[in-house]
């Protein structure tokens, strides 16, 4: 029962492919985070809007993203939009699905962060003649990003892990996709997935450490 022999050779042979898959994984995670951050800020603002349609739309997005499985969200982009006649490839489907999820979670984080910036900061900026958008971008947002930096780091790690959902919409170029293809061809399931797990773990750790470095460098006050 405990006599499984772990084979190293297939892992070594597959490593170059897996690393190029890891690169695709990182790309998707970073892009989805950029899109999610921008959309998240807009959603956080939209939720405070007095325009009912705008705030309703934002609330629906946030609620949907946070209260349904991420798997379904990716599914909906690929198959749901497909049944409406909008056919997207695996890669953009996964990217949009994860960005949607990121935006929903980040919007809620940002909303809390914005509330933690004293309203007197906005007033001081406006009193210097800055327009509301300028005051928001140059005075309020930078302070918000410091407050929400740690939750954002968590979301970034989560985004990396969510990319593994690409396999359900047929993505075969990311780390999970490549691992799955190797598995199907050779059935060294344990070896390949163990190796992939280690790579995911390392990516996540590097993100956390890099974030700490950035925080130390940027938030000097």
């Amino acid at each position: 029962m405990f006599q499984y022999t772990f084979h190293w050779r297939p892992i070594l042979n597959a490593l170059p492919d897996m690393l190029s898959g890891a690169w695709v994984t990182i790309q998707i995670a970073v892009l989805s985070m950029l899109i999610g951050t921008i959309a998240g800020v807009l959603l956080a603002l939209a939720r405070q809007s007095s325009n009912k349609i705008l705030s309703g739309f934002a609330t629906a997005w946030v609620e949907g993203a946070r209260n349904t499985p991420a798997l379904f969200q990716v599914y909906m982009v690929y198959f749901g939009l497909g049944s409406l006649g909008i056919h997207l490839d695996s890669y953009p489907s996964l990217l949009i699905g994860i960005a949607f999820n990121n935006a929903g979670y980040l919007a809620e984080t940002f909303r809390g962060g914005l509330r933690a910036v004293p309203p007197t900061q906005m007033r001081a900026a406006r009193s210097l003649g800055m327009s509301a958008p300028k005051a928001f971008v140059y005075v309020v947002l930078p302070q918000m990003f410091r407050i929400v930096f740690h939750p954002m780091t968590n979301q970034m790690v989560w985004a990396v892990l969510m990319t593994s959902l690409g396999v359900v919409v047929g993505l075969n170029t990311d780390l999970t996709g490549i691992t799955q293809e190797l598995n199907v061809k050779t059935f060294r399931t344990f070896e390949y997935f163990a190796a992939a797990a280690v790579i995911y773990y390392l990516i996540s750790k590097v993100i956390t450490l890099t974030a700490r470095l950035i925080a130390w460098r940027v938030f000097r006050y």
Partner: peptide
Amino acid sequence: FQQWNAFPH
């Protein structure tokens, strides 16, 4: 203002 409202960042 009374609270000087420096931009801390």
